[in-house]
């Protein structure tokens, strides 16, 4: 029996925006099924541009993206968007339906699933993020941390191959940050997490990739990346005061 294909395979991906600004210069990244990888890098490194290629919002100028063996192409877009669940930074951008339950149901209904299965998936996804009580509430009644967890549930309901999180810990209070970490640590999916929060990367992701200037400049176990002071400094990454990567 052959091994399952990697959840994510990015090969020599290059991309320039229509205004000529080139954001990616040949990115290679392979994420195996079940891995948790942190994607680090300074602002403007091309992290968000890379993420928008993973579900085909942006189309590769050169190179390719493959999700669990399926190449990202125009005719595979609907299935690619089921396989790649992107959680955007601002939950108010992601949650637009009148209630939490309807919002979580939005993706599964787009897949054309029958109603009983939609209901099952909504219940399961909300349970996974510990927000089962909130199904009938409007999103704007929730705290910011709760809204972010619901945003995670909206992509879990698609039963994705890989979940991509853009700055999951930003703007959260310490308890909200910890609650989200507990939820993420238990998810049985492949995880790619963009973050500036290096302790969060250390806590959740055994492996870290640094993207800078549109290329991958480091791809190592997280403890090694975080203890390489020179590497971090070269790419405008900094550990919080008092934090020791060994501890």
């Amino acid at each position: 029996m052959s091994a399952p294909p990697p959840s994510l395979l990015v090969e020599d991906l290059a991309f320039a925006y229509p205004d000529g600004h080139q954001a990616l210069f040949g990115v290679d990244l392979r994420v195996e099924r079940g891995e948790r990888v942190a994607l680090l890098g300074p602002n403007g490194a091309g992290k968000t541009t890379l993420v928008l290629h993973l579900n085909g919002i942006l189309r590769a100028g050169r190179g390719s993206v493959t999700v669990a063996g399926l190449p990202v192409e125009k005719r595979s877009l609907q299935e690619i968007r089921r396989r790649v669940g992107v959680v955007f930074q601002d939950p108010d951008d992601q949650l637009f339906m009148p209630t939490v339950g309807e919002d979580v149901a939005f993706g599964p209904r787009n897949l054309g699933l029958p109603e009983p299965e939609v209901a099952d998936r909504v219940a399961a996804a909300l349970a996974q993020v510990r927000m089962s009580d909130a199904a009938d509430r409007p999103p704007h009644h929730l705290s910011f941390g709760q809204r972010r967890r619901v945003a995670v549930a909206t992509v879990l309901a698609m039963q994705p191959e890989i979940v991509v999180l853009d700055e999951p810990s930003s703007n959260l209070d310490p308890a909200g940050r910890r609650e989200l970490a507990e939820v993420l640590a238990e998810l049985p999916v492949t995880l790619l997490m963009i973050t500036h929060d290096l302790p969060y990367a250390a806590q959740l992701c055994p492996r870290s990739v640094i993207l800078d200037g549109g290329v991958v400049v480091a791809d190592e176990p997280t403890p090694e990346v975080l203890s390489d002071a020179r590497l971090l400094a070269d790419h405008r990454l900094e550990l919080p005061y008092g934090f020791s990567p060994a501890g």
């Binding site: 579900n55 919002i57 968007r81 790649v84 955007f88 951008d93 637009f96 939005f106 992509v155 698609m158």
Partner: peptide, 13 residues
């Protein structure tokens, strides 16, 4: 625009 992007990412057609 961001909301639209997030909707597309979840299969909005």
């Amino acid at each position: 625009e961001r909301v639209h992007l997030a909707m597309l990412s979840r299969g909005y057609t």
